[in-house]
Each structure stands twice: as C-alpha cells, then as structure tokens.
Design a protein around this nucleic acid. Structure first.
Lengths: 153, 153
DNA sequence: CTCCTATGGTTGACGCGTCAACCATACCGC
DNA sequence: GCGGTATGGTTGACGCGTCAACCATAGGAG
C-alpha cells in the first residue's frame, strides 16, 4: 500500500466539493425560506418542534438538548434569544432546584403551527422533487453509509 | 393535483433529515480535523488555496471573492481576521485607488502547504472511503440534480 | 454532618456569516 | 470642468456556534 491510495483523485475531490457545497446551498435556501416565510430560524424550528411534541409543551433543559442533539451551552444561548422574542419561557424546576424547565409560550406555538406547512413544502420542492425515486433511495443509503463510517472512527 | 403531493411523506422526510444532518456532521468532522491539525478553518483554507494558485500569490479583493463565491463583506471580515494572524496582507492597488490587493504572506503559504495533505487525507478517509464506487457516482449525480433544480427556481 | 465529585445550567469571549449603511474613488454624460 | 451613478471595499450590529470557565445544587463516601 504505497502512497497511491492516500489522497483522493481529481474526480473524487470534485464529487466531494459538489456534495458539500450543494448541501450548503440547499440548507441556505431552506433556512432562508423559513426565515422569510415565518421569521424563524431552523434552530427555532427544531426547538419548537421538540417542545410541541412534549407532554405539557415543556421539557427539562437537558432533555431538550439531548432530544435535539445540541450542546447545553448552545441551547442555553439559543433559549435566551428565543425567550427575548417571547417564543418560550424558562421556569424553575420543582424537583431539582438546579434545573430549568423550558415551556412553549403561546407565541411560540402559534409560530410553529404557522411554520410547519411552508417548511415541509419547501423540503418537498427543493429536495424531494429534485430527485428521482431511485436517487432519493440512494441519498438515504449514502447518508447511512457516511454516518456508519463516521461512527466507526 | 389535490393536496396529496404537497407535503413530503414520512419516508421522504426521514431521508431529508438524514441527508442534511449527515452532511453537517461530516462537515464538522472535516473542519475539526483541519482546525486541530493545522489551526486553519475551512474559510482560511479556501482563501489560501485561491491565493496560492494566483499569479504572484496576489489577487484583487473582488476577484478573490468572485473566485471562491463569497460576498465581499464576508471576505472583508475574514481577511481582517487572517491579516491579524499574519496569514495574508492587504496592499493598495496601483491601478485603482479604491481597490485592495490581497497578498499571500509567508506564514500563510507555509500554513497552506502544511494543511493540504492532511486535509485531503481527511476527505478520503471520511468521505471517499465510506462509499462504494457506485455510491460515489450516485452522490455526484444527486448533487448535480439538486443544484440544477435549485438553479431552476 | 462534612467533604468531594458529579450534574444542570449560564456566561463571556471569540470565530464566523448576513444585512444594511457607509465612504471613497472611478467613470460617464454634459 | 461639474454632477450623478456605479463600483470597490469596510464597518457595525446582530444571530449563531464552540470552548472554557464558572456557579449552584445534588448525591454519595467517610
């Protein structure tokens, strides 16, 4: 195994660049639409989705972070911004005085309900409709393969 | 065409989430490795790559922005940070007194040379090696299809 | 009860990106 | 020359993300 296999060749590098750059453009488009349609960022949407599905529309901060796969610090900063806008509230936790509960505020629930249809429509228009059925399947498999490979590292 | 086709179904949504989330994890891994291996961000790398390939290791600011597809404002902010670290310099432009030329500094050239092999190796390890040949081809086609569809909007 | 550590959460600094405002020079019509 | 617009570039404010430091309470071990 000499140096030959160490570095990607021109074609592989091209696919790599196309792949991430396209992913980024796509992501920007979707977040841009969400933003202009509803004034929410994808982060807002993620948080509001999790809270909407939670019992009592409330979650312990750590559980929320774990549920959406965020670091606690990131969540804390984001909740601060969302709280300022009246989308959520923070309450003290009855059973653990260290803890905090995040509660969906009325404005947050309304914003989320208003956002979901346009957002899903954007996903269909910009992603699903762009691909053939086979490509959609392949996209799923590629994502799974990459993820599995990443977790093996 | 009733409402049936308007929103993505469960399986499509799942592929969508897997697709972007995996892309993000992958991007984070690559940028993290670049950062820890060489102290450069992907933005730094992009700028240094463009400058390295330019005649005289220098470019007009606008040309650089156009070449790497960045907004001028973003580039200006980024160059400010890179200049502070001694990776590049900014000089007045002889032929257009409004303009600025961006020059690769010695430290920048060295950093870039030190970064390229590890970075390409990471791309191979985390991306190319994770996929079969067919998947790699499919990934390229998917990116192309998405891009074409985006540009049609 | 008293330490000692683990856990829950917040904060501050900083890098990065976007947007809108801004300043200076260039260029064009007159 | 003069005035207006276009172009090149910077700046400031703000959202977002990470990291490291920090504070408070919880929950043992002795």
């Amino acid at each position: 195994m000499a140096g030959g296999r160490r570095l990607p060749n021109r074609a592989e590098l091209r696919v790599w660049r196309d792949f991430i750059e396209t992913g980024e453009v796509l992501r920007n488009q979707i977040t841009g639409r969400l933003q202009s349609d509803t004034g929410l960022s994808t982060g807002d949407y993620t948080v509001l989705l999790a809270l909407s599905e939670a019992a009592g529309q409330r979650l312990r901060s750590s559980d929320l972070a774990a549920g959406i796969g965020w670091e606690r610090s990131r969540l804390s900063h984001h909740l601060g911004r969302m709280e300022r806008r009246g989308l959520i509230r923070r309450e003290e936790c009855a059973t653990d005085s260290r803890g905090a509960e995040v509660v969906l505020a009325p404005a947050g629930g309304a914003a989320f309900r208003a956002a979901t249809a346009p957002h899903l429509r954007a996903v269909r228009e910009l992603f699903v409709d762009a691909l053939t059925d086979e490509q959609l399947v392949a996209a799923g498999e590629i994502a799974a393969a990459l993820r599995a490979h990443l977790e093996r590292s």
